[in-house]
Design a protein around this nucleic acid. Structure first.
Ligand SMILES: [Mn+2]
Ligand SMILES: [Mn+2]
Ligand SMILES: [Mn+2]
Ligand SMILES: [Mn+2]
Lengths: 215, 215
DNA sequence: TTAAATAGTTAGAATAGACTAACAAATTTA
DNA sequence: TAAATTTGTTAGTCTATTCTAACTATTTAA
């Protein structure tokens, strides 16, 4: 059985591989808040387990085996988040830290039951795809709101960032998944957007718009 | 934050203290399937944390602080078992191993929500009392079926033993909590009991009768 | 294209938690 | 009560995971 440490490192490497492809040691150290040498020694261990390809001074490459294993942990994380929101009444800003722990529970039956009770959901409460039991994960086909033009009407589908603070900010603006958003104006200077959705009229910063994924 | 190891040792010591009062190192080693020296060194650590009183070669004594901390872990364990049975459809024989892991989750909100969704249950699926949030635990006021006399009518309230095998055995006999049992005969030689309950007529061994707690 | 800055590595040490081997105390049995 | 058995302790080792300090390779900038 893999330790929680191993699982957390692997997951962090997998997540960075999605966004940047070039995974570097420093990024993992920052994501996990550990020292560079800690990452270095764990990377060697993961490579020894066949989960990474590792060559000194080269960017890390996750193997298919590693990808699959990471996706299975992420599956548990996201099913848990969905369960906490849908079945236990938590807000989407409250569930990540709990899921961070529950993702290490060893009990296929426990997660299968969650999955079943939830009706086999495809996405977690933040719109991220839930990998299947084989560790396969759907690709995100959404684009950031920031890429939209004035006059476009789109639907909020997922988030590119899921910190508590951002989620609370979205709560305060009543921005939730499924909301239909119309782009009214884009400020050329700073790319702020004036938008309208469910009776609200708001100006959203470029930073926020880059984290709202729509279709 | 206490490690899972610390929590498991403390819980094992607390549990032995309930049944035997005289807690000895060997019993803990057997319960946790670790070596005697492992227990010895952990005992010293727990004593240093003020959770045990420890004197060389003397039986272990758990302190009030230790008792309270253990009860809070057991609260999480038993709430989890109840939740798994009541809200997720698991059988009472399936939940212990999952609860053994979930009891270490650090999230008061998670367990508070379980408690609330369950309607603040007093007992777990095996009839054991659920300690309250302050680490106080109700005393078991039930007696073993083995102490009953022929002609008595009693109700099955809790179990004195909760291994998977025993629970599956009870399933096979359709013996569940709440079942009304009448003692028909007691065999003087081996204390086997002939009993009747919900249309069944069975002979139960003395061992089984000693583990069925009734009132 | 050398110098500075950044990124990655190695060596060595600390802590937690487990173990075996050897021994000592306490208890049981003869 | 003396011997045998059981129980508990100590010493020393091992693995996992973390760290700091020192160093090296790579990348960026002057
Ligand atoms: Mn999350
Ligand atoms: Mn985690
Ligand atoms: Mn249990
Ligand atoms: Mn446990």
């Amino acid at each position: 059985m893999n330790s929680q440490s191993i699982e957390n490192y692997l997951k962090a490497i997998f997540n960075q591989a999605i966004s940047t492809d070039e995974v570097n040691t420093t990024g993992i150290a920052q994501a996990l808040e550990v020292s560079l040498p800690s990452v270095n020694s764990m990377v060697k261990k993961l490579a020894g387990m066949g989960l990474l390809e590792y060559q000194k001074y080269k960017p890390l490459k996750i193997t298919d085996k590693g990808r699959k294993m990471a996706a299975r942990i992420i599956r548990k994380h996201r099913l848990t988040e969905m369960y906490l929101v849908e079945k236990m009444g938590f807000g989407w800003e409250e569930v990540h830290d709990i899921a961070e722990q529950l993702e290490h529970i060893q009990s296929p039956a426990f997660f299968d039951r969650m999955d079943e009770l939830l009706g086999y959901p495809q996405r977690d409460p933040h719109g991220s795809p839930i990998p299947n039991k084989n560790g396969q994960i759907a690709v995100q086909e959404y684009r950031p709101l920031a890429d939209c033009q004035p006059g476009e009407q789109v639907e909020l589908k997922a988030l590119g960032h899921t910190s508590d603070e951002f989620l609370k900010y979205l709560n305060s603006k009543e921005l939730a998944l499924g909301v239909k958003v119309e782009v009214l104006e884009v400020e050329a200077f700073d790319r702020n957007m004036k938008v309208e959705y469910s009776g609200h009229r708001e100006v959203l910063s470029a930073l926020v718009c880059s984290k709202l994924l729509v279709s």
